[in-house]
Structures are given as structure tokens and as C-alpha cells.
Write a protein that binds this DNA or RNA. Structure first.
Lengths: 340, 340
DNA sequence: AGCGTGCCTTGAAACGATTCACGATCATCG
DNA sequence: CGATGATCGTGAATCGTTTCAAGGCACGCT
């Protein structure tokens, strides 16, 4: 059964289409008797509004004078991997801010693939998203212009670019503080553990750490690049470390998931943390605090980060025409627990 | 800047709107020179198709004769909390299956709120989703009918309902096998730890466990309801357990996150796991295997579950008119590691 | 009676893309 | 040279809704 249109409802109720539309959108304009008649017709025909037509007609309207029933456009949140608690925390911070402003959030993953990223963005474009918060993998200035042309606000997460709003954490500073802490503990043989893909933020963390070491006239003994930033790979890294001629006395991991896996494996192998090996992570995910050896780590204000990004997106979407792009940089903070 | 329409492109390229449309949808009908001219104009204006208009015109057409360039409708995946690794794993399984079939996945969270759930579904409806995979919180038969009327396939995750496709895990069996394992270890004083909200699946796990105990003529010593299913709350539960007159010798946690937090806290307090207290979790998330004390747990085939749900949704969306709803039940599996 | 005033309702014009019956153009062939 | 096709483009009709100027009607007032 082809869904019935407003016209059939009108005929059935013996009124004009305009009146039916009014019943739908501004019931107060319609006399009660008419309203009931129309409502009954709607009921009988099982009529449902055709959203495409509605949107087409309403055009690119903004939140101002929306009749009841019109929803604000959603925002897209594109992250690399929703399986990573860091990403979900950021995204959640963003979602809360968006919800508070009455908008919905759609989450999408780009799976570290520029191709999938493009698909995601096309989808959002097609869905008339009001904006997108994205951890870009292949998105360049050109792509950003395209999104803007489609009427979307764009905010970069954890990356920066020219002429676009962004929120990032100063990972160089974070890495430096982590390295400084290990040095302060008197650890000299240091190892770095990161992911093979070397995404920009991880690279910065390592750079910051390396830089701090260099200033103290040192350099890392080893840098391990694991396949991914997961506990399983952390455990693998631990085994690689233990197989070394001289086991490092301090380890800086590019994220907490790696660190947790690494610490657990070390402990299982009888290595004492932090006595034998001090380990420091990055992110301060919930598990860091509740790990067997509570993890010393560098806290990223990730909830904050999501929130800030959402707010930038909201203002960009609101100001739309002339908008001053802002780059926000948040500073991470060392959280000393037991592992280092 | 209001996004440009097909008409402006036509003017710029010096052709008629019909031709532009042809370039978009049936490029082979257009001479190469014209085609390039139109494409250039599209590029310059940053033109993007207005999906509303397209859909309006095309009417309620289905996947059959879609011209190239038309995107398949996306599917929505609604879970309670994307911060929970179990949920993300399920969702990811679903996404992979959807992607493989050429569809996109939109992730949404209902935050355990029936209200937010309604918003999510309205959003998907408005976005013309092809279907929705949902962990329902307040969705009843009536809501399902409404979704169907809007042309969406519906598949329930981890719940069942009459006249609707669903995929769930037999948690009763899972709980039973966990309890049986603890009993088999000779543990008699058992504690259950769960979440205060008592979502259906958790309740089933406990029921299964309680039933298994009852068959052995026993019952749980305590049942703790923590505020949420997180490691932090697991640690809190550990402290509550240790404050008891008689500390239980076996604990069954409603999920791994709780269990991990609980085990870690026990170990920190000098309690040996599993010697003093055996702990068994539920889910088998990645962290379970790499925890300090590798966790014995009940593995849910969550990737599988997501995949199965996606496939049901895909076939429902394809068969559309006459569709036989299927209820799939997967069986969880005990994974014995070290904690019990 | 004539007129202003509120209500309600109407009808037609958008919105932007797709589709399709027709022309226009041009090369080929008898 | 005219007929025949093939190849390309055109322009108008159409989808279902919202919006809005304009009109109908009943009422009260002078």
C-alpha cells in the first residue's frame, strides 16, 4: 500500500490540503471540529508525513521559527575506532554538550581509513547534519571546504588545520612531562612503546618525551612500535622488553591500554612495578586508576575536549556566515599513582 | 551561502537542468564534452544533491533500480552506552556485516533512557534509515509497529519480543555455567555482584546462577547491586565484600568490567585470587585476558551477535513485505583462566 | 444597510531533483 | 536530395509538503 498523502487525507476529511498541513503544524489555527475531522482521517488512512517533501519545502531553515515537530539537525561525531575508550570518552563529552543544546549526535567510525572517512562524511552530508566533529584521517583542506559548502560546521578533534576550528591536547607537553617524571625518578634506561600506525598525536607524545630526554642529554634506549594500541599488544611489548639484553628501568607508553597490558604482563613475569620497571601511560582512562598496579599516567581532559569541540561546532553552526575559527589547545596533566 | 541547486549548475554550464540530472544519474547518456562542462560547474559551485528532493521525486522506491550514485539507506545501531566495551564490540560486529553489504552504520546511544531512545528512533526515522538494531530500553510492540510503518526493519539486541527479529545470548545458561564452575571448585559461600539498574540480561545471568545454586541446594550469601557496571564500582564491591563478617569464597560478577575492578582491588588488599576468593566475570572483553589475574569468564559471542543481528536486519529490509521474523539465541561459553 | 473585525479556510506557488516525450542536429545511404 | 536513424538536449510535468495572500463568513457596531 503506497503511503497516503496529505491530499488524500484532505479529500477524505473534506477540506483543503492547506488545512491538513495546518492541523499538522499549527493546530491552533484550525477550528476544533475541522481539526478532529482531519485527525480522524489521518488515523483511518494511517497517514505519515513524508519527511523528504517537508524538508524540501522547508529548505535550509535554521532553528528559529521551526514549527513544532521539526527536529534540529543532528551533528556527526566521527572517530577512528569506537572500541577505544579514549575515543568514546571524547565522543561522549561531545554528545552531552550537543544534547544539552537540544541536538542529537550520530557516531561514525572511519576505521583509520581515508576511504571510509569519505563515506562517513558523504553520509552526514546526505543526512543534512548541522556539523561534524572529526578525528581526521585523510581529510584535507579541500574536503573541509566541501563540507562547508554543504552547510556543515567542521571541528577537528586532536588535529589542527588552517582555517578550521579544532580542539587538541598539547601532546608534546604531555610527553615531556611523562619523560621528565621518569627521569626525576632516577630512571635512565628508558623505553618508548607506541603504535605502528604512528598517528599524529602519538608521534607528538613521543616527540615531546624525546625532546625532554634530549634536554637532559639522554635518549631512549628502545622505541617499540606495536601493531595497535591495545592491552594485548602491550603484553607483547612487555615480552619484547624482557627479551632485551638490558631491560629498561622506565617505560613510557603512548596510551593507557598499552600500559595496562604491559604492566600486567610484567607483573605476571615476576617483574616488580615500579621497583624494577617504572611504567607511565597516557590518557588516564578509567581502568588506569583501578588497575592492579594503579597506573601513573598523563591525563587528557578528554571529556572536556569533546565538550569544547561540541561548543565550537554549535557556535560555528549558529554564526554560520561570518565565523572566526578557533584553535583550542588543552594541557594534559600528570597523574601520579603507583606504577611510576 | 545557500547550497546551490541543479538549476544554477545548469546555468553555469550552459545546459538544461535535465542534462545536469543526466550527468548525475546516467552519465552515459551525455556527450563527453557536455559531461565535462557540467562536472566542472558542479565542482566550482560545490554543488551537492539535495537528497530530500531526490527522494521526494523518486518516491518510495527500493533498492532495485537505483541509479548509480544513490546511496543505500543506512542502518542505525542503538546501544545503551558506547562507553561499555561489550556494547562497542557488538556494534562493531554489526557494522562490519553492514559495511560488507554496502550499507553504513550510524551509532546512537540511548543512555538507558526511554526518552532518549525515542529521540534516537525519531531521528533514524527522519533520516530514512533502512533499519535499526537496538538494545531496547523502553521500546514496546507499539513502538516497533510504528518503526515498521516508517519502513524500517527492526532487530532487537539482547532482548526478545513477539513478532520481531532478535538476537540474544542465553544468559540464563551463561549464569548457570558460571555458578556451576564456582561450585565445582568447591566454593560454597558465593556472592553475586550486579548493577542497580538490573537490565534484563544481567537479571537473567543472576537468575541462571541462582537456579544452578538452587539445584545444588544452595543459595547466594549476598547479592550486591552496584551503581553501574564499571571497574570503579567493581572496586567498591570488593570493599563491601571484605567488610562482611564472612568473606565469600567465590564471586560471580554480572560483567567483566566489574570483575576486573573487583579483582584488582582484592589483590591490592592482599587477598589472593583465586586461592582466597575465586572470581568469575561475564562477557570476555579483551581486558579479561590481559588482566593482572587473567579472568575466568563467560564468553559472549558478541561479534557474532552483532553480525547475526545485522544479517537479520538486512534480510528483513530486503524481503520487506512478507517477512518471517526470527529469534536467534546464541550460547555463551565458559572460558577458564586463572581467577577461578 | 454598511462596515470593520476576527476567525477559518482555500488555492496556488514554491522547494529541488527526476523523468520522459519530443526536437534538434548530423551523418549515412540509396 | 530526401529519408532514416542515432545521438544529445530540452522543457515541462511531477513528487508531497509548507506557506501565504486572499477570500468567505458571522458577528457586532454605528
Amino acid at each position: 500500500m503506497p503511503p497516503s498523502s496529505i491530499r488524500e487525507v484532505a479529500r477524505r476529511a473534506g477540506v483543503s490540503v492547506g488545512t491538513v498541513s495546518n492541523v499538522l503544524n499549527r493546530p491552533d489555527l484550525v477550528a476544533e471540529a475541522t481539526r478532529d475531522r482531519v485527525r480522524a482521517a489521518i488515523e483511518e488512512l494511517g497517514f505519515v508525513r513524508n519527511e523528504s517533501a517537508r524538508r524540501l519545502r522547508q529548505g535550509g531553515r535554521r532553528a528559529d521559527g521551526d514549527p513544532p515537530g521539526a527536529r534540529p539537525r543532528p551533528f556527526g561525531v566521527v572517530v577512528e575506532d569506537l572500541t577505544n575508550p579514549y575515543a568514546t570518552d571524547v565522543a561522549r563529552g561531545a554528545e552531552q554538550a550537543l544534547n544539552a543544546a537540544g541536538h542529537d549526535a550520530l557516531w561514525l567510525t572511519n576505521d583509520h581509513s581515508a576511504d571510509k572517512e569519505r563515506r562517513c562524511l558523504e553520509l552526514l552530508e546526505q543526512q543534512h547534519a548541522a556539523g561534524v566533529l572529526i578525528t581526521p584521517v585523510g581529510l584535507g583542506p579541500f574536503g573541509i571546504v566541501r563540507l562547508r559548502a554543504a552547510g556543515m560546521a567542521v571541528v577537528l578533534l586532536d588535529h589542527t588545520g588552517p582555517g578550521v576550528c579544532s580542539v587538541r591536547v598539547d601532546h608534546v607537553a604531555g610527553g615531556a612531562v611523562a619523560a621528565a617524571h621518569l627521569l626525576g625518578l632516577g630512571r635512565e634506561r628508558l623505553a618508548f612503546v607506541t603504535g605502528a600506525a604512528h598517528p599524529q598525536p602519538c608521534q607528538e607524545r613521543l616527540d615531546g618525551a624525546a625532546h625532554a630526554l634530549a634536554q637532559a642529554g639522554r635518549e631512549p634506549a628502545v622505541t617499540l612500535a606495536q601493531a595497535s594500541l591495545t592491552p594485548t599488544e602491550g603484553a607483547a611489548a612487555a615480552r619484547r622488553l624482557l627479551a632485551l639484553d638490558q631491560v629498561p628501568t622506565g617505560v613510557f607508553c603512548a596510551n593507557d591500554l598499552l600500559a595496562v597490558g604491559l604492566v600486567n604482563e610484567l607483573v605476571r613475569q615476576g617483574v616488580r612495578v615500579p621497583e624494577d620497571v617504572a611504567v607511565i601511560g597516557y590518557d588516564d582512562i578509567e581502568l588506569a586508576a583501578t588497575a592492579a598496579v594503579p597506573l601513573t599516567t598523563v591525563r587528557q581532559p578528554r571529556h572536556e575536549l569533546g565538550r569544547a569541540a561540541a561548543e565550537l561546532a554549535l557556535t560555528e553552526a549558529a554564526e554560520e556566515p561570518r565565523h572566526e575559527h578557533r584553535q583550542i589547545v588543552l594541557t594534559p596533566e600528570l597523574v601520579v599513582r603507583e606504577s611510576a
